[in-house]
Nucleic acid binder design. Structure first.
Length: 827
RNA sequence: GCGAAAGUGGCGGAACCUGGUAGACGCGCUGGACUUAGGAUCCAGUGCUGUAAAGCAUGGGGGUUCAAGUCCCCCCUUUCGCACCA
């Protein structure tokens, strides 16, 4: 009988599905375990990254199930978004059709890989039953003031007359028509994530089981910094400019102010100038530069003098006001004080425009500041030229100056964050319609809850140019104002798909519930997620939004846990030829072909064996063959001996075993210990699998040695059955088949995980490493538990050791219990 | 530039926690067995130098220690993330 993986995998997949073995419900008598993998985008076909992600999740799910947990292991589809719309434009397929076809294909592929998903809970975010709850959450957030509308900049292609996503801009040009991209200002919807900046930061304390690097990245992204705001009065004007600085100690060295091109005062100042048009053009240029260059390498700092002066409130000095292309409106207050002597960017700007440079910090009381090699002195130091603050150290000065500004009413200590509010508006079709109406009489009116969902119209055309398809869908736009009954216009923006993926894990818990996004009682049973597995590339955006949503939902009284997933496992990328697999590089390996050639079990095994989960995995074409051979060897060790194995009595007397049988039993128990630990504690499946390979080698050796006493087949029977249980979490199909062939009752899936006996795992003879003067020379074998004295004597008698010792004087002996002995001798 | 992680045979990777036999397991390679044949299977070997004894080896250089892949300092390289953040 040959190992026919096709037949075996097909047989068991059908059986599992027919028996609905992966279905779960809440069971208060059992500990729950929620194993969650990141929501996949249905791009068309499963790729290696998916296989890796889900193979990891499947081992954990199966293991937890076998160790007595009630395991929730769901899957679904992140089914809205740009690619479907692109497909519609290019191939004339409706986004819905394209998406559902892809989901169907990928669903089948996942089935063929034999993952233990609870398919009854499968969700697709593009179904109105799902996205209606995006709309519901939006309305709740709107009520709380967490959703608001504001003008902001977008990429705009003047030829296609359409808004472009960042990824649709290639080298500053439109990806379709190569026209240079310009910027445009649009009213857009935002979520007020900045209100949660401090909590997002603080609650990281709870994330002790997240990778350190993800936490650091999020921390930098939130970018909390402590500084000061200071108000400068504009000379001969009622206007004031508020600036933000982290270095108020350098304020006596402020020789000019720079404000962002979008700053409202810019227009205020230039609008009354005679050459307004020229100035306006220059400012627009600066703004464009600032926007376009935000994703590029460093560029020249440019600016324009606004012909106004501001008064430094600390020394009443009059300093010029400039507009600059490197000051961002969305960070701080959109205005800075420029201290060229102590800030590199300000320094470069001052040099370019010949502005005054004044030194106010020196490194130490002994040294003077020198501006060498065109570098500003940006370290902290001792203040000079700063009136009553002179001779103070920077840190002391910062406190005193903050206080000074505060009591005189022109500033204060301020905390600032880099984190910006989350812009959720998309001028696209294939997204969740934002449930808002515009009424001439009542203004912005939210769609009443009872009218949800606002469903996407089906009959639309996709051209890739002009306004969003929704804006052209007359019957969609036309609505009635729920307040006054007059005609109203429907919002045509749809939501960012990160909204969908911010709460989907809650929908899995009660996927068909229609009275709310989820059933609270069930949520309190399953939440929080016990392990969240996904790619490191989602370290920031998705994982911040996801944490933000949980906090909002806690505030809305919907859930209890402010951190939805206290344990995060970030898997590395699958690399081939030193680069991430991608279509453009042409180094993609198709999992489906591998399943056809080697079977799902082999593929999954190789994904797990090649590297530990958190590391990038180098794809090697030959590796999977090794895994296939490994399964084949298991098959060939059991199948020819099925009769013997089945006939053999289950019990045997441990004390009367032969040496080889004892060896085999010992190896079995050692393997159980290692595999259990590797899966449960270390999550290093590569070493767990290698232990199984070692045990197989021992089994193979014992069989070949042909030492088959009466108890031999009983021992082998136990080893094989326990082997299959361990194997089943990695290669479930072959394990299930062999389990059945061994005439065992029930599915292996329903078996309990096995435990090991420490007494049986113990070695009788152990090797002790012998060093001389710290240098390893040889090992000696001694009975386990031998005393130091016995080990010493055995070592001295050893030929290698005695040769090195000669008649030299042993000064000292260092002994590490049951491990090592180091003889320190005279040279 | 800033932040983070990582550098171990021809290759993927072991050596965890706690400094204590570096190279588990697999791939590849070499030899052998069985075969009409083998790109199947099984067995053996495989870090480098050396007949051996032994010596040298964990990116490079220092240090701590009886003992360092592991701890400390400096440098180099690679990957990832961020990028004018006032």
């Amino acid at each position: 009988m040959e190992y026919d993986f096709k037949e075996i995998e097909d047989k068991w997949q059908k059986k599992w599905q027919a028996d609905r073995i992966y279905e779960v419900t809440e069971d208060a008598s059992k500990k729950k375990y929620y194993c969650l993998e990141m929501l996949p985008y249905p791009s068309g076909k499963i790729h290696m990254g998916h296989v890796r992600n889900y193979s990891i999740g499947d081992v954990i799910s199966r293991f937890k199930k076998m160790t007595g947990y009630n395991v929730l292991h769901p899957i679904g589809w992140d089914a809205l978004g740009l690619p479907a719309e692109n497909a519609a434009i290019e191939h004339g397929i409706h986004p819905a059709q394209w998406t559902w076809t892809n989901i169907d294909t990928m669903n089948k592929q996942l089935h063929r890989l034999g993952f233990s998903y609870c398919w009854e809970r499968e969700i697709a975010t593009c179904s109105p039953e799902y996205y209606r709850w995006n709309q519901w959450i939006f309305l709740k957030m709107y009520e709380k003031g967490l959703a608001y509308k504001q003008k902001s900049l977008v990429n705009w292609c003047p030829k296609c007359k359409t808004v472009l996503a960042n990824e649709q801009v290639e080298d500053g040009s439109c990806w379709r028509c190569s026209t240079t991209v310009s910027v445009s200002k649009l009213e857009q919807w935002f979520f007020k994530i900045t209100d949660y900046a401090e909590r997002l930061l603080n609650d990281m304390n709870q994330l002790t089981k997240w990778p350190e690097k993800v936490l650091i990245m999020q921390k930098n992204w939130i970018g909390k910094s402590s500084g000061s705001t200071v108000i400068f009065q504009v000379e001969n004007s009622p206007h004031r400019i508020e600036i933000f600085t982290t270095r108020i100690d350098t304020i006596f060295g402020a020789t000019f102010l720079i404000i962002a091109p979008e700053h409202p005062l810019v227009n205020e100042f230039i609008s009354i100038e005679p050459d307004y048009e020229v100035l306006k053009q220059k400012v627009d240029e600066l703004r464009l530069q600032a926007w376009k260059n935000r994703y590029t390498e460093e560029y020249d700092k440019e600016g324009l003098f606004l012909r106004r002066y501001a008064i430094n409130p600390f020394n009443q000095e009059k300093i010029p006001i400039w507009v600059g292309n490197f000051v961002l409106m969305e960070y701080g207050t959109g205005a800075i004080m420029a201290v060229p002597a102590h800030d590199q960017r300000d320094f470069e700007f001052a040099q370019k425009y010949n502005l005054f440079i004044k030194t106010v910090i020196k490194p130490s009381p002994q040294e003077d500041t020198t501006i060498a090699d065109n570098n500003a002195f940006t370290d902290y130091g001792i203040l000079i030229n700063s009136n009553e603050f002179s001779n103070l150290a920077s840190h002391e000065a910062i406190d005193r100056m903050n206080h000074h500004a505060q009591i005189n009413g022109f500033g204060s200590h301020t905390i600032s964050y880099k984190l910006k509010d989350w812009g959720i508006s998309r001028q696209r079709y294939w997204g969740t319609p934002i449930p808002i109406l515009y009424c001439d009489a009542c203004g912005i009116v939210p769609v009443p809850e009872k009218d949800l969902p606002v469903v996407l119209p089906e009959n639309v055309t996709f051209t890739g140019t002009g306004p969003s398809p929704l804006e052209q869908a007359e019957e969609f736009i036309t609505a009635t104002c729920p307040k006054c009954g007059n005609k109203a216009k429907r919002e045509t923006d749809t939501m960012d798909t990160f909204v969908d993926s911010s709460w989907y894990f809650l929908r899995y818990i009660s996927p068909h519930y229609s009275n709310g996004p989820f059933e609270k009682s069930k949520v309190s049973y399953w939440m929080p997620v016990d392990i969240y597995i996904g790619g490191i590339e989602h370290a920031i955006m998705h994982l911040i939004y996801f944490r933000f949503f949980a906090k909002v939902m806690v505030d809305l009284g919907l859930i209890d846990h402010v951190e939805p997933a206290p344990f995060l496992l970030t898997q590395g990328m699958v690399i081939k030829d030193g680069a991430k697999m991608s279509k453009s590089l042409g180094n993609v390996v198709d999992p489906e072909e591998l399943v056809n050639t080697y079977g799902a079990d082999s593929l999954r095994l190789w994904m797990l064996f090649a590297a530990p989960p958190e590391k990038d995995m180098e794809w090697g074409d030959k590796g999977i063959e090794g895994c296939y051979k490994f399964l084949l060897r298991i098959w060939r060790i059991i199948i020819p001996h099925l009769d013997n194995l089945k006939k053999a009595p289950a019990d045997y007397d441990v004390t009367s075993l032969s040496i080889h049988e004892k060896e085999l039993v010992k190896k079995l128990h050692q393997t159980i210990e290692r595999v259990t630990k590797d899966i449960n504690e270390r999550l290093h499946f590569n070493t767990a699998i290698s232990s199984l390979m070692e045990l197989l080698n021992t089994m193979s050796y014992c069989l070949h040695e042909g030492i088959q006493s009466p108890s031999f087949w009983s021992v082998m029977k136990e080893v094989c059955n326990k082997y299959l249980i361990m194997l089943s979490v990695f290669a479930p199909h072959i394990a299930e088949e062999l389990w059945e062939l061994m005439a065992n009752e029930g599915l292996i899936f329903h078996q309990e995980w096995i435990t090991y006996n420490p007494d049986l795992a113990k070695e009788d003879i152990i090797p002790i490493a012998i060093q001389i003067n710290g240098k390893f020379r040889t090992t000696i074998d001694v009975p386990s538990g031998s005393t130091e004295e016995v080990i010493k004597n055995t070592a001295i008698e050893n030929t290698v050791i005695s040769r090195h010792l000669g008649d030299k004087n042993i000064r000292k002996i260092i002994y590490v219990h049951q491990k090592l002995m180091n003889f320190i001798i005279d040279k």
